[in-house]
Amino acid sequence: MTITKKEVVHVADLARLDLEGEAIDRFAGQIDTVLAYVDVLKGADTQGVSPTSHVISLFNAFREDEVGTHLEREAALANAPDKDDENFVVPRIVG
């Protein structure tokens, strides 16, 4: 086994996902199958190989630092599940 149920629940927790009941077993099995398959990568010789972070050679996409037009506050707030006139509103964070 590559990943245990406990680890799946822990990682889900880090990603702010709750797994419960039957979903834990199902996900753990499916994710373990995928990770076990992914182990084939260990066989690839990558000694001294640089990782690819960008597939076309493009460095430092500079632009002038100019004032532009941006979303108005009203538009930015339009999709918020909860808001007041100026802010996104979230549940209480500090008691």
Binding site: V38, L41, K42, A44, T46, V49, S50, P51, T52, S53
Partner: peptide, 11 residues
Amino acid sequence: YYGKASQVRTR
């Protein structure tokens, strides 16, 4: 995982 896969991506 991610590091190794990114190297294999180069290959």
